[in-house]
Computed example of a mutant assay.
Amino acid sequence: MSGWSGERVLVTGGASFIGSHLVEDLVAEGADVRVADDLSSGEPENLAAVDDEIEIVEGNLKRMSFAETATENIDTVFHLAADHGGRGYISNYPANCATNMALDNVVYEAAAQNGVERITFASSACTYPTDIQQEKQRLSEDMVSFDERGGAYADEVYGWAKLMGERSLRAYHEQYDIDASMVRIFTAYGPRENETHAIVALMAKAYAEQDPYQIWGDGEQTRNFTYVKDITRALRLASENITDATPVNAGIRDYITINEVADAIFDRLDWHPDEINHMTDKPVGVRHRAADTTRAEELLGWEPQYSLEEGIEATLDWYVENRNKEYVQENLETLLHER
Rank of each mutant, 00 (worst) to 15 (best):
R149M: 10
S140W: 13
N114L: 02
E117P: 02
K136P: 11
D104Y: 15
V144R: 08
R149S: 11
C126L: 10
Y108F: 05
Y108S: 00
V107K: 14
F121R: 11
Q133V: 02
N100Q: 07
N100V: 04
R138W: 05
V144I: 00
Y128C: 00
C97W: 05
T120D: 14
N100H: 07
M143Q: 08
S124P: 05
S145T: 01
I132T: 09
A110D: 12
E135G: 07
S124W: 09
A95Q: 13
T127Y: 09
N114E: 06
M143V: 00
T99E: 15
G150V: 02
R118L: 03
Q133Y: 04
N105E: 07
A95I: 12
T127Q: 14
V144A: 04
A112M: 02
V107R: 14
K136S: 04
E117N: 11
T130P: 09
V106R: 14
E135T: 09
R118G: 00
Q113E: 15
A95D: 14
M143L: 05
I119S: 10
S140R: 15
N96I: 09
N105G: 06
Q113K: 15
E141R: 01
V144T: 02
T130F: 14
N96H: 11
S124C: 04
G115W: 01
E135L: 03
D147G: 09
T127W: 09
L139D: 07
N114S: 04
V144W: 08
Q134V: 08
A112G: 01
M101L: 11
L103E: 12
Q137Y: 06
Q113M: 14
V144K: 08
R118M: 03
V116W: 13
E135Q: 08
L103N: 13
A111D: 07
A102C: 08
Y128F: 07
V144L: 03
P129M: 03
M101Q: 12
S123V: 01
V107N: 11
F121E: 13
T99K: 14
N105M: 04
T130S: 12
R149L: 10
Y108N: 05
A111H: 06
S145L: 00
A111K: 06
Q137C: 05
A112L: 01
A98C: 05
A110S: 06
